[in-house]
Design a protein around this nucleic acid. Structure first.
Length: 894
DNA sequence: GCGGACTGCTTACCT
DNA sequence: ACAGGTAAGCAGTCCGCG
């Protein structure tokens, strides 16, 4: 390890002027102005890292087919450039097999394979067999020789050519790992971390400030074993090291299309690219526009300090765009994988340009850049885990408009016209807004999104391109794979885990599920004052830690472990060895709970640092929340159903124990779900008793998460309303909060919510009840008199979960409405939000746009209002029918 | 032929 | 392509009813 120099410039904790810290060793970034000649050259030869490169971030790794080497993309933040460092360790692609070298020598298609290099016998620990074994390592000169070709890959040849009557099954391991991942694991390089090139070698930088913090933080974990502490330290290093400023550009293109209802096909690229906007971290706001006959300039207002550049031909426009892609180390798009970049490449080819002029590599699903890192924010914001935990559901439709609105409060420019009808300034403003939103999605809250991607890059050991596109199960798989390689453990094949450890033994409550999940306690209906909510922080990760769960440890081969049973299951857990997953997940959990959660809230820290800790704890939350689920997901490479089942079983056992204990010490439990219990008006001693009991009996921490001034329960599970001491209101599961209901009803619900927030004592309720009755009566009258302002208020908005033609079993209302829209010429796709109104005449639904006031089925809306409010009203002792003035007889008849 | 009881499908939510 | 549990509304089916 070497000491970093000149790093202070991008340490968030020390904002010194750049000049002050710039060291005498000149940065290689100071390149002379590129001439046309040089520009063309760099299109062929990307910038190679010099023998000595100042501290730079490992942002990506890939395989260079021409040089047959792994290549690392390094981002040097002072110059803002990317440098390519080519492997100099001689690392080669390989896979493992149980066949002996002798057996391999009888397989000509393997040993005479054009990519085959040699083989050697190695010793490795087999986690399923729980012993060290000898396997043969097949080394090749080309990753494609192992796998990836449609036919003739070694991983396919071995099972094909091995004698069928042989006594054992031929096995091939680790043949599906991408080569650059294999390279990253074996070299122990950590993507996202800081490296220097010294005399041609890539060496890690040590950041003293971060190391000091790590040393300090380690002291907090007094109960941790030495092994656990090592893991905690490694995770902490990945998170404590500083982030750079990311020099980046958001881009967006517009394509001329004769029909406004259809998106131009990116593979055909028949229409011209007419516009490209650029919004960058160095404050460029630029729009490149194609000159076309008959287009007015117009005078649509452009943002100040933005500028328009006109291009006479499409070729020159495309070249200018490609130059941008050679300039910026990070390029942001919204759906660039599927549209912008694909279109640009095909369009360039259609125009007769040389394919290599476009610095874009097109894959099946992704488009990567030859030079920098392309981050497609559509993919990142589409990620469910990111959507829920990192952006707390602030958007729901993954469109630029909706994400921009939900996260930034910034929307697209609305326009009724088609691209061809816009004046130059209208087009430019429209296009620029799109890249502005795209850029700001990464800059808001102190660059939260970029930092999140960086932290996830480090945790998962994946290139930034991959981490921003792939799901949480890939992140988890990759850090587990990394750990296997670091410990010289064979990475088992999924089928072998399943075969050895088997399936599940409990019965799920829900038909079609694989095993039984969490317990939900029946709520005690009514209004309850002073409710303490106690919960286990990260229950499932804690269980995985405390119970030593992992695919190796569950149902292990040792006889003496068979008595170590998981409650309510026939599964036992290993007592001999610590499972790797238990260590990885447990240490990550402890670090989040004992360090990052509180640091993110620590007001004594500078705000930049607090925001960094907030990013970190959010990233850990995303991963921890998924860390149990992945074991029950077939798509996960270390899929092991008994592990998932055991985790859930211990969870049920834990909450049940608390319930029973609370009963014996006389605490009333009002409700509980998975990892929480709601206690009615508990004394301090009672809370202490519950805490003591769980820590002692269950070996897990529990705390009071929040206390409600009062909470309202109906008899429905996962449905309640709680008012916190500061007057803020938690609404859980109630229809009034669901996003598909008409605003007309939601508004009334929110009025009620606000009124309930005012209630402080049981006595306050009487007045509140009258006001709530008024709110309901008012809505009812508006409906009956058809006095609503706008049809949009009555629209239900439901997401079309699947393509229209795939609804074969039933035709739900939103599908009926979607079909009507399709008839009228609209393009309807899975994921679209369908807005419809309930009408009196069959088929009883109509898209909002097509509905007039007199068609509305008012009674249906009254019924919906009724059911929405009933969830709260019965607990308050109110009746919807009485509020709207029905007599007892009328109610009986109704 | 109609209506109620029932099951299944679909979406949105909770942890 | 992380899991299971719950609520709600509607679509579709079955069965009884002289």
């Amino acid at each position: 390890m070497t000491q970093a120099k000149g790093l202070d410039a991008w340490l968030p904790q020390k904002a010194k002027p750049v000049e002050e810290v710039r060291k005498a060793e000149a940065s290689p970034a100071q390149q002379p102005e590129a001439t046309e000649e040089k520009k063309r050259k760099r299109h062929v030869y990307p910038p190679k890292a010099p023998d000595n490169l100042p501290p730079s971030y490992f942002v990506s790794a890939t395989y260079d087919g021409r040089q047959r080497k792994a290549v690392v993309k390094l981002y040097e933040p002072e110059s803002g450039n990317i440098y390519f460092w080519y492997d100099n360790t001689g690392h080669k692609p390989y896979c493992l097999t149980n066949l002996s070298p002798h057996e391999l020598s009888t397989m000509p298609r393997v040993i005479h394979h054009e990519g085959y290099d040699h083989n050697e016998v190695i010793e490795i620990f087999d986690p399923l067999a729980d012993k060290t074994v000898k396997v043969t390592k097949i080394i090749t000169n080309d990753p494609l020789a192992i796998g990836g070709k449609p036919q003739g890959s070694i991983r396919d040849i071995i099972p094909e050519d091995y004698p069928k009557d042989a006594p054992r099954k031929p096995e091939v391991w680790e043949a599906k790992i991408k080569y650059y991942q294999s390279y990253i694991y074996d070299t122990r390089y950590l993507p996202g971390m800081i490296y220097q090139v010294k005399n041609g070698n890539l060496v890690p930088c040590v950041i003293e400030d971060a190391e000091k913090t790590i040393a300090k933080l380690k002291a907090l974990f007094k109960d941790a074993t030495a092994e656990e502490l090592e893991y905690i330290e490694e995770w902490a290093r990945l998170i404590e090291y500083p982030a750079p400023k990311f020099r980046r550009a958001a881009i967006d293109i517009e394509v001329y299309a004769p029909l406004s209802t259809r998106v131009p096909d990116a593979r055909e690229a028949v229409y011209p690219v007419v516009c490209c906007s650029l919004y960058t971290s160095d404050n460029q706001k630029k729009v490149l526009v194609l000159k076309r006959p008959g287009i007015r300039e117009g005078n649509y207002p452009m943002p100040p300090d933005s500028k328009i550049e006109y291009y006479e031909t499409e070729e020159t426009l495309l070249r200018a765009i490609f130059d941008i892609l050679w300039d910026y180390p990070f390029i942001l798009t919204f759906n660039g994988d599927d549209f912008d970049f694909r279109y640009l490449v095909h369009r360039a080819v259609n125009l007769g340009m040389n394919r290599n002029e476009a610095p874009i590599d097109i894959g099946k699903r992704v488009c990567l850049l030859r030079y920098g890192v392309h981050i497609d924010l559509y993919k990142f914001f589409f990620n469910r885990a990111v959507q829920i935990y990192a952006f707390s559901n602030r958007y729901r439709d993954v469109t630029l408009n909706d994400v921009g609105k939900g996260v930034l409060g910034l929307e697209k420019i609305k326009s009724e016209k088609t691209i061809g009808d816009l004046s130059y300034t209208e087009l430019a403003a429209y296009c620029l807004r799109d890249s502005e939103i795209t850029y700001k999605l990464t800059s808001f809250e102190d660059e939260l999104a970029m930092k999140l991607i960086l932290v996830l890059t480090r945790i998962s050991s994946m290139p930034m391109e991959d981490v921003s596109r792939q799901g949480v199960s890939r992140w988890i798989r990759n850090f587990m794979h990394r750990e296997h390689r670091h410990k010289n453990m064979l990475i088992p094949n999924s089928e072998d885990i399943l075969e050895k450890k088997g399936k599940t033994s409990t019965t799920a409550v829900i038909k079609g599920k694989k095993y039984q999940g969490a317990t939900v306690v029946d709520p005690v209906p009514g209004v309850h004052f002073n409710v303490a909510v106690m919960d286990f922080p990260s229950l499932y990760p804690s269980i995985i830690k405390v119970w030593n769960l992992g695919y190796q440890s569950i149902l292990c081969p040792h006889p003496e472990c068979r008595t170590n049973l998981v409650p309510n299951t026939p599964h036992w857990v290993c007592k001999r060895h610590r499972a790797m997953e238990s260590l990885l997940i447990g240490s990550l959990r402890d670090l989040r709970v004992s360090w990052y959660k509180s640091r993110a809230k620590d007001k004594s820290l500078p705000s930049e640092q607090r925001s960094w800790y907030n990013v970190a704890q959010g990233a850990l939350k995303v991963i921890l929340n998924a860390s149990y689920g992945v074991f029950g997901a077939e798509s996960f490479d270390l899929y092991c159903p008994p592990v998932a089942e055991a985790t859930a079983a211990v969870g049920r056992h834990s909450i049940t124990q608390i319930l029973n204990h609370a009963k014996t010490v006389g605490i009333e439990v009002l409700y509980g779900d998975t990892d929480s219990v709601f206690l009615k008006n508990p004394t301090k001693e009672q809370i202490e008793e519950v805490t003591r009991f769980t820590e002692h009996e269950l070996k897990m921490g529990i705390d009071v998460d929040k206390t409600y001034r009062y909470a309202v329960f109906s008899s429905r599970k996962k449905n309640y309303l709680g008012v916190l001491e500061d007057g803020s209101v938690d609404v859980k599961g109630l229809t009034g909060k669901k996003k598909h209901i008409p605003i007309f009803i939601k508004d009334a619900f929110n009025q009620m919510k606000e009124r309930l927030a005012q209630v402080k004592t049981p006595a306050d309720f009487e007045k509140a009840k009258k006001d709530i009755a008024d709110i309901v009566r008012n809505r009812y009258m508006i409906l009956k008199r058809r006095e609503w302002k706008d049809m949009n208020e009555l629209a239900f908005s439901v997401v079309l979960g699947d393509e229209l033609e795939r609804y074969t079993k039933t035709t739900p209302q939103h599908v009926k409405a979607a079909k009507v829209l399709k008839e009228s010429g609209m393009e309807i796709r899975a994921g679209d939000l369908i807005r419809f109104v309930k009408t009196t005449r069959p088929p009883h639904v109509k898209p909002v746009e097509l509905t007039s006031k007199n068609e509305v089925d008012v009674d249906k809306y009254v019924a919906y209002l009724h059911s929405t409010f009933d969830q709260v009203l019965d607990a308050l002792g109110l009746s919807f029918d009485e509020i709207i003035g029905l007599t007892k007889l009328e109610r009986f008849l109704a």
